[in-house]
Structures are given as C-alpha cells and as structure tokens.
Amino acid sequence: MPSTAFHAPDSVEDVVALLAADPTARPLGGGTDLIVQMRSGRLAPGSVVDFKRIAGMTGVRREGDGFVIGAATPCTALKADAALAAAWPGVVEAANLIGSVQVRNRATMAGNLCNASPAADSVPALIAAGATCVVAGPSGKREVPVQEIPVAPGKTSLAPGEFVVEIRLPARPEGGGDAYLRSTPRTEMDIAVVGAGVSLVLDADGTCTSARVALGAVGPTVVLVEEAGKALVGTKLDDDALAAMSRAVQAASNPIDDKRGSVSYRKAMAGVLARRAALIAATRAGAKA
C-alpha cells in the first residue's frame, strides 16, 4: 500500500509545484470528500497538499460589488458573511445543505466543485449565479466559468498542477434573486437526488429580463439549461411560463437509475424543483427590487 505524504506549503507556487510533480497528488482544502475517498480506497494519492495556511485562501472579500471566496473557505463561513448571504442567498443556502454542520465547517464550495459530483449541491447555484473560478497552475492564473470545471463524474478540466484558488460571484444585479432546492429522502445528511438552482432578474413591473437555470444529478455533470432560462425571460412567471420552463428542464435531464433515484423520478423532480426554486428566486428578486 503506497504511503501518502502530507505537505502544508505557504505559497500558491509551492502548491502548484507539488501538484505538478506528482500527478496523483491532491490539493487539500476541507478534505471532507478527499479523506473519505482515501479511506475507502477509491483514491491513493502520493501526497496531499494542504493549502489552507496560504494567506487569502480562507475568507470572503468584496471586489467592487462582487465577492471573492477563497478556495479553503468553509461553507458555514459563507453564511456568516451577511453581505454575501443577502446578495446570493441561493448560493449560500446550497452550500449549507452539504452534509452536516460538522461537515460544512470544513467543506468548501471549491472542493464541492472539484470533486465533480453531478449531485454537488453548491454547483447548480453557482452556475445559475454566473460564478467563475480562478485556477492557479504552472502557467499562472486563469479565470473560467464554474460550469467548465466538471467534465464527468469525478473528473475536472483542471490540468496537472492546477487547482482552484478562488470562486468569484458577480454583484447581485438590480432586481435579481436566486434560489436552490434539492430533493433528498432525509432532511439533512444526504446527497441530492436532484438539485435545481435558479437565478433571475425582474424589472420594475415584475417581468423577467434574464434567467439561468442549472440542474444537479440529472446528467454526468451539473448542467446549465439555457432553454429553461429562456422560457422565463419576458414573462411574469405565470403558470404557462413556469410549465414551459419545467418542460425545458425535463427535456434537458438525462439522469441515470441508481441507488439514489430512478430516471423517471429524477426527471419529474427536476421540473418540480426548478419551478419552486424559480418562484423563491422571484420572491427574493421582488423583495429586493
């Protein structure tokens, strides 16, 4: 059984160098997925590289009206940031559905993203919100939309030596609101059977001017369903518009049958949850407009 080395460097460059030197090496943020995978034998990295001690990796900071979230920021810290929770309640709530309080005190959105599970709770909300992430690697830093990171279950687009250093959320648009809902058998401590994130903008008379709908656990990666957003734009989220959105969501859903849910149940829930999330997002947009 190969042994694992533990490193806790104090610069991004050192992390990149350690990751680049060993393709099996894994960056360590919250560790709540990594440690479980190592213990179960699914992963046997040559080393783990703890980047939490690097300045700026933990915490939320404002940049203009947007937010920059360090990759090691635990989910509960997002909730504690009142401005972030007010601007992107859907994202913050999504991140705070993961696991338990104990887990969320370690788990991070960056880890949730890079674990590349199609059922990741924070990812549909981030995609709906139009979040990006900054990736550091051997050739410097690049900023990419969140939806470009996961490419398949457990697989990311990150190149050897690369890791996510921060997640960026734009300023909340005027008249904007977001929400995330998931379906799980239990109220807590569960993995989404289906998740739906919606972010939309209403104008002064309540007409939707833009909308993004993203779904979890209905395909190999979290998917952004552009048709679903389009179905809402130009409407006042009346029943017909919501039904059209639900149909678009179901059409875009291509789930699998597994121990957590069936194809038919997942498709049905995607439509229900997206509609409910859209209504919550609209309420929030109205409340804040």
Partner: peptide
Amino acid sequence: LDNPGFLDYRMPVASD
C-alpha cells in the same frame, strides 16, 4: 451491497 454506509443507508436524523 450498494449502500454499505450511513450516507446511503438512511437512518433518521434529528431533523426528520
């Protein structure tokens, strides 16, 4: 066995 853990063998939690 496909669910040999407390995550997918779902015993009730306090909030249920």
